[in-house]
Every structure is written in C-alpha cells, then in structure tokens.
Nucleic acid binder design. Structure first.
Lengths: 333, 333
DNA sequence: CCGCGTCGTGACAACGTTGTCAGGGACATG
DNA sequence: CATGTCCCTGACAACGTTGTCACGACGCGG
C-alpha cells in the first residue's frame, strides 16, 4: 500500500479511499492510484483491514459436518455455500466423523479465526462447552441434531415422525417382523429414529421383536454383516427399516448377495443419488437437504445481521418417497 | 490481551509468551497468566498474529471444485481435508459449476484472504489470469484438468487411456455401434475422453459412427433425453460409453424406462457410491479419488513448505472395474 | 476584502499481536 | 567486593489498514 501511495504520489490514506470506493477523491488522483494499483498487483490485506475496522466481519463461516463425502453432508454444505455466496461469505468446511474431541477442537479453532458464524452437526453428546466459546458473540446454528446443554438455533427433521411413517408404511402392508438397523445410539438421530420405529408398532398395539432391532452399526459393512445374521434367524424379518443412507446400502448389498432384493421389503431414512435406479428402486424417507441448508443459512445470516431474539428451533417434515422396495408384499399374501 | 495482562499483573508481551509457549517465563507467572486467560475466555486474534509474524501462514487453503455435492468433488475434498488437518490447515471450499467468471472471482478473493495455497479444478479454458494472482507467491495445484497458459503443478488421471480402455472393453465383446455421451466440449476431461473413445476404434482400424457421439450434455436429464433419442434411431447403439458419473445415471434411467438395462452394455467413467448395487451393477473406469486428493495435498504442502522446483504433472491411471453392465454381449451372439 | 463553508488531502493513532532490545535481579567467578 | 553471565520481564515499534481530525485551497455571499 505504501508502494502504491509512493508510485501515485499520494498518501496511504488516499490509496485506502480509492480502494474502498470512498467519496472525496478527485477523478485525477483516483485514476493515478488505480493505475498504480494495477501496475503493482496490489492486494489489500483483508486481515489487516478486519483488524482495524471495528467489529468488521471476516466473511467466513465454519461448517462442521459429519462427513464431507457423504451425500447428506455434501448436499447440505452445497446449499449453505449457495446462500453464503449471496452474503459475500466463504465456507470453511470440516468433517467430524462423529469425533467429539474433533468437534471441540474445530469449534475452538474456528472461533479463534473469528468466523462470523458456525454451522454444527454435533458429534458430542452435550454442548455445554459451547457456552464459553460463543461468549464472544459468534452465532451458531445446529443442524440435523438438536443442541443439548445450551440453547441455540437449530434445524432438524422430525426423526420420530419420519421413522414412524416409514415403519407404519411397512406395517400397513402386513409386515410384522420388521428389522430396524441403526447407527450408534449416542447419535441423536439414530436413537430418535428407533423411537419412531417403536411408536409405529405401539400405535397398533403391537411390539417389535427386540432381536430384530440392531443399533450401533457404524458402517455400510457392519450393516451388511448384521443383515446377513438377521436373515439366518429361524424366523427372519420380512421387511427392514434402515435409519441412515449408508446402512441402507449395506442392507441392499446383503439382500443382493442372497438374491432376496425382491423378497424383503426395505424403507430407508435419507435419500441418495440413484436410489431410484436400484432394483427395486429404494423407497425412502427423504430429507430435503436443500431446504435444510437454506433454512440453516437463513437463520445464521439473520443472527450475523444482528438478530438477538430467542433461539428458534425449526423442525422440517421428511417425506415418504415410494419407489418399490418398500412395497414388496408379505410372502404368501 | 491487555485485560489478561492487567488481571495477571504482567505485561502484554508476557501474556504473548505464555500463550505461545515461549520459554523464559517463570512457573509462577505462567500460572497466573493461564488463570487469567481461563477466567476471561481470552482468544488470541489469529488475524493480528498473522499480521505481525513476518511471512506467517494463515493455515488456510482454498479448494475450488466443480460441485461440492458431486461424489467426485466431495471425495476429493475429503481426502484433501484429511491431509490438510495433518498440517494444521483448514479448507475453504467452493463450487464453480463450470463458471469461468466464478473461478476468477473466487481465486481473487482467496488470494486476498492470503490462503497458503489453492487447489483448483478449473472451469476456465485458459488460466493466464493466474499469473498475476500467483505473483504473490501463493502456490496452486490443479486437479482433474491440466493448466493452460500457465505452468503449475497438476494431478490428473489418464483420461485418454481410460476412455480407450473402456471403449476397447466394449469393442472386444463384439460391439461396433457404441454410443459416447459426454460433457461440454470446453471441459478438458470431456473432450479428452472422446479422444480416447475414437482412439480405441482407430486401433482396430475402425471408425465410430459420428451420429452416436453426443457431446455437450450438461446434466443427468440431458443424458436421459439424448439416450432416448439414440435408442430411437433405425440402427440404435448396442453399447454406451459415458464420460462422467452424472451422465451414467442419466443413461441408466433412460434404459430403465425402456426396459433395456440388460440389453444395452454400459461402461461409465467415474465410479460412485452404490454403482455396484445397480442391476446390472455398473462397470466403470474408476479414478481413485482418495489417491488423487492425497497426491494434490502432498504437492501443495511441499510447495507451501518452500519447494520451488519445476512444476510437476502427475498422471494417475484409472482402473476398469468390471461389474456386469459392461459385459452385456452383443444381441444374437 | 473578509469570513465561512466545502472539498480534497494527509498526518496520526489505533486495531491485537509479536520481534527486538534493554534493564534489573540473582548468582557465580576472580 | 567487583565484574560478568544468565534469566526473567517489560517498553517499544512494527505488521497493513482505516477512523478521526486538521489543514489548506477554493468559491461564495455580504
């Protein structure tokens, strides 16, 4: 900046004025400065600028998601990115892989970087630690999982209702032995979806067979193994409810390996690309990631804009997408 | 920081020493400062710190990919993120959507933010504009598509060879009427893969039917429409080569709509999750995104570390993953 | 011709941090 | 006891920028 000023024969302050399009600079000077800027490839230092400007924004938001390469996280991030762009803001993205420690480290790091806001798909059981982190005034919005131990904005889908709908869909077709495969129970969405599963049975005065409920599956491979085990029971399930997209794929794989894809009904939570191209096409409870992402971005940027009203909790309804796999009838009917 | 110093009864410099774990602070003082830091929730201001430290890193790299929500971009980003974490670096991610203007804007923005390095999946035809941008010393690594008009590091897969292998795989089974569906020709990978397609024919002294070569398809839906049109020809293709994962899904959809999934052979470029669960499972040329991402990260961090040797261009070989869709025989054989 | 407002410009301080250097005390050495 | 060395600590300047204020030139009305 000093060099530019020297080359244009003006003071640094005047360069600053030109660069920031401030009024009160004669056309002649403005032109000289612009020429100097161009000639020297001058780039304003955003860090220094932010340092000086009182309470200026960094134009950065942090997004902590489960796994960038999972279609749910990736879709969410994409929607967030699109909204952020409209606010001249860039997105710092990181994967948590359900690591509670990583979540705390990353939040700490992002707050130190003075991000304008945080989007968190929490991996921790409780987020009390955030109280201290957010004291600086950084707003945060939770997504996919509600906050515990702290009251901040959140956008989640109705997991209980969604799981109930999915399960009821299978029950309505006569299935009574429905398996439920789910993620680690400490993950909120995993346990809530199992609640919905049980509720659907209860609504009909029935009870699920506890042997068919398999929680704590951490990968597609574990789901495949678990499904094989279930199919080897004396009284195997006639239908399956999977609580997450990677578990759905594991189950499809197990069914494929046994040639049972058209015999066992399946409804999965979470849609994913090409689910409609499977054979049979996969019936799913779809969360509209675009809508979730936009809702999150909307709330976040309102907060960044100065909204200090009470935290809001948005609950979106997932929708049943009927494609075929969930409509396989009970054998012998 | 001043407040911490006051509370601990020391100078700001001493606080700085404690915060940065510098030697030469008595245990007594260190303890007092740490207590004050904890009590006041003091966060060092990274921006100010970077400003003062001469030539310090921001611990930030920018990644400009085609589309965050596409499995190829997302997988790449994930691999980059994992490597970056080991270098204490966070990733700024953005989608280009093949927008040349967006690429230039974003590069400009990221350079102004003083990122330590850039990863670019270019959307522009030429990247001369980068010469000025990179004069500040920011290293860049290109991925998926080689640089034009500037010589910087790159990691690409052998697109010509991969397309040739895929096409030869179909030719070897007797197919002679193979359709080729591809992306916008200005995209390097799209045009190169068509070159490989033609080369495979040429190697056998044959020529592809130009009416079966359909470039400039920008979405899965366009691929579906194009495929329907091809199947309505008097002499329709007996096999298909698709140059990108979203085009593969479009073709599968068209085939499914006509009940031809087991009649028309298909080999796609780019693997994607659950390609093995389609019926028939999809035969693809797989690019190992993890390896690509790690190679990119490796080169980038060597540059950031001060490596000033001549730009390197890494070419990785994709591999044919035989699953079934590519092995459908020619009708009547 | 004087006083006053307006306009363009620059000097200076400050944002939060750290590199440099100097000062003062404790201790060892001659 | 004088001198030197080491250790701990703090004052100060500087990183690149912008907010504040003041200054001089100019034009206008009285």
């Amino acid at each position: 900046m000093r060099d530019v000023a020297a080359l244009a024969g003006v003071s640094v302050k005047t360069v600053s004025r030109v660069v920031n399009d401030e009024p009160g600079v004669s056309a002649d000077v403005r032109e000289r400065v612009e020429a100097a800027v161009a000639r020297l490839d001058y780039r304003p230092n955003l860090a220094a600028s932010n340092l000086r400007r009182t309470g200026a924004r960094t134009g950065l938001v942090g997004a902590l998601v489960q796994d960038l390469s999972n279609s749910f996280s990736a879709g969410l991030l994409r929607a967030l990115e699109d909204s952020a762009r409209q606010h001249g803001t860039a997105v710092l993205a990181a994967s948590l892989d359900e690591g509670a420690d990583r979540e705390q480290e990353l939040v700490h790091d992002l707050v130190s970087r003075r991000v304008d806001g945080l989007v968190i798909m929490p991996a921790t059981a409780r987020q009390d630690y955030l109280i201290a982190e957010l004291r600086t005034g950084t707003p945060a919005v939770f997504v996919d999982r509600p906050p515990r131990g702290i009251d901040v904005d959140s956008v989640v889908v109705d997991n209980v209702g969604g799981a109930r709908t999915a399960t009821e869909h299978l029950l309505a077709q006569g299935h009574r032995r429905i398996a439920a495969l789910s993620d680690t129970r400490t993950i909120h969405t995993a346990s809530t979806r199992l609640v919905g599963f049980a509720e659907a049975y209860a609504a009909r005065g029935l009870e699920p067979d506890p042997r068919l409920v398999v929680p704590d599956l951490r990968s597609s491979e574990e789901a495949t193994r678990a499904m094989h085990a279930l199919l080897e029971l004396d009284d195997p399930p006639t239908a399956v409810f999977t609580a997450r997209n990677i578990l759905s794929s594991g189950v499809v794989r197990a069914l494929a390996e046994r040639g049972l894809r058209r015999q066992v009904a399946l409804v999965g939570f979470d849609d994913f690309p090409m689910a409609d191209l499977l054979d049979p096409p996969l019936t799913v409870m779809r969360q509209d990631v675009g809508r979730v992402g936009r809702a999150v971005a909307h709330m976040l940027f309102e907060r960044i804009g100065g909204d200090t009203s009470a935290p809001r909790h948005v609950v979106l309804e997932p929708s049943l997408v009927v494609r075929g796999s969930g409509e396989i009838p009970l054998p012998g009917r």
